[in-house]
C-alpha cells in the first residue's frame, strides 16, 4: 500500500518532467519561427536593440519592397510554375509506369524494378555537376547548329529535371500501393470490353487517390523547397530564379546592406505557402509518411 502511494508521487513527478521537456522542445521550434514572422513587420531601426521587443507597428513596406524591389513576386510566380509543371509531368509519367511495373508480367520487368530501386540511392545532389555539364554542352551544340540555346536558365527544363529525379521514389511508393490491389478489378473491366488504357485511367487510378495525394504532397514540398539544382541550372544573373534561390541571394545581399526587414519578409513569403498547406493537410502528411516509410 505504502509502496503504491510512493509510486503515485513518482508518477506525477515523471509526468511533470515529460511535460517540461516536450514543452521546451515545442518552444524551441515555435519561437524562432514566430520570431521571424514578428521581425518581418519591424522597421529597420528596430533591429539594433533587444531582439525580443515586439514590433512597434505593422510595417508592411517590407513586404512591398521584398515583392517588388527584391523581385520576390516574380520569383514566386516562377516557383509556382516550376512546381506545378514538375508535379504534372511526374504524375503523367510515374502513374502509368508504376501501374505497369507492378501489375503486368513481361520480360525485363524485374530488371527495370531493380534499376528504379537502385535509383532510390542516387541522390540528386551527387549528380548535379554532370547534369549541369550535360545541359551546358547541349546548349553549346544547339548554338552551333541552330544559333540559339534553351537548356540552361529555362524553367521548363528545370521542371523536367525535378520530375525525372523524383521518379524512383514516386514509382516505389505507387507500386507499393498498386501491388495491394486485387486482380479482379481488371478482369471485370476486360470482360466488359474495356481496353488497357481505359481500365487504367477509369478504374485503377481513381482507386489510388490517397496514394496520389501523398505523392503530390511530398513532391510539392521537395520541389518548392529545392535550391541546389535550381541554383546550378539557372545561374545566369538575368535569367529566371525560383523562390528559395532568390531568398538565398537576398540573405547574402542583406549581410552587406543590412536590410533586415526585407530579408525576413522574404523568409515569410517562402515559408507561408508550405505552412498554410501543412495546416490544411497535416493529418494526411503525417499519416502518409508511414506509407512511404522513407524519404531521401
Amino acid at each position: 500500500m505504502n509502496a503504491k502511494r510512493q509510486d503515485g508521487t513518482g508518477d506525477r513527478l515523471y509526468k511533470i518532467f515529460i511535460y517540461v521537456i516536450l514543452g521546451l522542445l515545442a518552444i524551441s521550434i515555435l519561437v524562432p519561427v514566430a520570431w521571424v514572422f514578428m521581425a518581418s513587420i519591424k522597421e529597420n531601426s528596430e533591429f539594433y536593440g533587444n531582439p525580443w521587443t515586439l514590433p512597434a507597428g505593422f510595417y508592411w513596406q517590407n513586404f512591398v519592397d521584398a515583392w517588388n524591389a527584391a523581385n520576390m513576386g516574380s520569383y514566386m510566380l516562377n516557383s509556382v510554375l516550376v512546381t506545378a509543371l514538375a508535379l504534372l509531368l511526374l504524375l503523367l509519367i510515374a502513374l502509368p509506369a508504376s501501374y505497369c511495373l507492378s501489375r503486368f508480367q513481361f520480360r525485363g520487368r524485374k530488371a527495370l524494378n531493380i534499376c528504379f530501386m537502385a535509383g532510390l540511392f542516387i541522390n540528386v545532389n551527387y549528380i548535379v555537376v554532370p547534369v549541369f555539364l550535360m545541359l551546358r554542352d547541349g546548349d553549346v551544340w544547339l548554338k552551333n547548329v541552330f544559333g540559339s540555346s534553351f537548356l540552361l536558365n529555362n524553367l521548363v527544363v528545370l521542371a523536367v529535371v525535378y520530375a525525372s529525379t523524383a521518379l524512383p521514389f514516386t514509382i516505389y511508393l505507387l507500386s507499393g500501393y498498386f501491388q495491394t490491389l486485387a486482380h479482379d478489378y481488371e478482369e471485370a473491366a476486360y470482360i466488359d470490353g474495356a481496353g488497357y488504357g481505359t481500365t487504367m485511367w477509369k478504374i485503377i487510378f481513381p482507386m489510388a487517390k490517397p496514394s496520389i495525394i501523398t505523392v503530390i504532397l511530398f513532391n510539392f514540398l521537395s520541389f518548392w523547397n529545392e535550391y541546389i539544382i535550381s541554383m546550378t541550372l539557372m545561374s545566369s544573373s538575368k535569367g529566371p530564379k525560383t523562390l528559395p534561390v532568390g531568398l538565398l541571394n537576398l540573405m547574402q545581399a542583406q549581410q552587406s546592406a543590412a536590410q533586415y526587414g526585407i530579408m525576413y519578409a522574404g523568409l515569410v513569403l517562402v515559408m507561408l505557402p508550405t505552412l498554410i498547406l501543412y495546416i490544411c493537410v497535416q493529418n494526411q502528411l503525417t499519416q502518409g509518411m508511414t506509407m512511404g516509410g522513407l524519404k531521401g
Binding site: V33, P51, P244, Y264, L285
Partner: peptide, 19 residues
C-alpha cells in the same frame, strides 16, 4: 509542432538560424 521544421526549406531554416 514537432513536424513543422521538416516542411521548411533549408534556405528558410538557415535564415531562421542566422537570426
Amino acid at each position: 509542432v514537432f513536424y513543422i521544421p521538416n516542411i521548411l526549406s533549408v534556405v528558410v531554416i538557415s535564415g531562421i538560424f542566422s537570426a
